[in-house]
Design a protein around this nucleic acid. Structure first.
Lengths: 280, 280
DNA sequence: TATAAAATGAAATATTCATTTCAAAAACAG
DNA sequence: CTGTTTTTGAAATGAATATTTCATTTTATA
């Protein structure tokens, strides 16, 4: 029989979480599976039955009960109640309304709340406002490129590195264009017709990136632009531009929606590329 | 036998609510009790058993079952599942659409929709699961540092650059630690007690970052960790770790929620720093 | 490698739970 | 009132669930 904790088991979710973190390493393999699953899917543990949970966590029924007992609970039911309590008093439908009300009335709101709200809104707007076909066109263009160059400085730089990372992971040759303004333009001049450029700029616009785009367009290099407005200097009729507007909170803009768009672009490009080159 | 609705019962909480409001007046007395109780205590209906609910609503077991059937459900269990789903982190309207789309149109959903959905969900989870105090503690710690060092490679690198950008914009000295593994550890050894480190890692974990964290902790350098699980090797009891779980779409994870958290951390740190140094 | 200890899965058991049944009470119509 | 229908509650039934047991496998230890 496995040793069971003598002390009283955690009676709140956050205590339980702490317990799991502290004991995870010393837990048997299957119990670790349960631990990881529980932390990842607390709602499933709270609402479903042993049979369903154990199936999803890929363990047997007994293991779930053992897990609960090893923490010190009477059994699974006892532990489940802790997960359930953690969900209560935060009913989803009310939470939404509360959000709106509080946003209007109380100016002193937690930063996390304000920013996550803004991020969430921005993502929804993105989904509604962007034309799916534009993303597909862009990825088609990119999938044909031998090498994808990516440029975007300042606030756009994280997007640049994110795209770069994703392309590389998908086996697509990608290069970041950075450095001093002069050097960047020099680098851009060397990009060939069968390659492509992704340029990311937000207001306040960096003149460098605009220069880069122009250079490429002159050389007939395909350009995909990610901007926060069609009025952005780098959006022109002869390139493809994808527009993301990040909602601002007291003058500060996030990047959540932009990152989402970037991921989409990368994934779609990846799909097409793998079709073009069936065997790696 | 009581008349039962012939039409299909509501499959979302908000539909169910509407149904109850519309039929309330024509319901028998005890069923009215149940209706009122259910609208007032949806969480109890979602989580507890017939016995407990009927006791709290001051009706008998049978009445509860009858109530469910009179709406058109198979039985109480069927109705309860609607209440349960309303508590989960899956936003109601989309879950519905997804189900329908998946059933008839072969799960061929636009990538943009899937990713923005995942991003949005991740942000909501972040908001609910993270402890606001942890962010404040972390920013307090960071605001006291003369220089903030930031480390995070691979998928975490965009987060690193984002934090770096924001700190600099706020007039906070920040340095990115990158380069070859060996060099990184060397750099970390030079960080002093009155400085701080932010480490960002996601699974699959890079061993380098863990090494970095350990080095700093040994030297008593304050460490703030951003990870995607409390089981991450860099989360330890003696540092501050902030947890973000990005929902995955066919194995691919975004960064939207993480970026949101990063922004919060930077902004809170900025606030505190400006208080500490009133005049620049 | 041999032995003990721990972990695990499958099946049996016991419990809890939802559902149905049926008789009594209440409401209603003539 | 009287007979009929609807509503209701208590108990019986049947189904699902959690828990325990035990044989087997795995892991650790000497």
């Amino acid at each position: 029989m496995p040793k069971t904790e003598q002390t009283q088991p955690p009676r709140t979710y956050s205590e339980l979480k702490t317990w799991i973190q502290e004991h995870y390493d010393s837990l048997p393999k299957r119990l670790q599976s349960v631990a990881a699953f529980a932390l990842d899917n607390p709602d499933v543990v709270a609402l479903k039955t042993i049979a369903i949970i154990s199936e999803q966590a890929e363990v047997t029924d007994s293991t779930l009960v053992r897990f609960a007992k090893s923490i010190g609970y009477d059994g699974f039911t006892d532990m489940q109640s802790v997960f359930q309590e953690s969900m209560r008093y935060i009913p989803q439908p009310y939470a939404q309304r509360l959000n709106r009300l509080e946003t209007d009335s109380q100016s002193e709101q937690s930063a996390l709340h304000k920013f996550s709200q803004a991020a969430s809104n921005s993502i929804h707007k993105l989904e509604q406002q962007i034309d799916e076909k534009d993303i597909l066109k862009a990825s088609e263009l990119l999938s044909k490129a031998r090498t994808i160059y990516i440029a975007g400085a300042g606030r756009a730089f994280p997007v640049t590195t994110y795209l770069h990372y994703n392309f590389l992971k998908m086996g697509i040759q990608a290069v970041i264009i950075d450095g001093i303004s002069d050097t960047m333009t020099e680098k851009a001049k060397l990009i060939r017709k069968d390659e492509a450029l992704i340029a990311i700029t937000f207001s306040p616009y960096s003149a460098h990136t605009k220069e880069l785009v122009d250079t490429c367009l002159v050389n007939e290099v395909p350009v995909v632009a990610i901007t926060d407005s069609t009025l952005s200097p780098i959006s022109r009729s002869d390139d493809l531009h994808l527009e993301v507007v990040e909602e601002e909170v007291s003058g500060i803009r996030g990047l959540s929606a932009t990152m989402c768009l970037a991921l989409c672009l990368a994934v779609e490009t990846g799909k097409l590329t793998s079709k073009l080159t069936p065997k790696t």
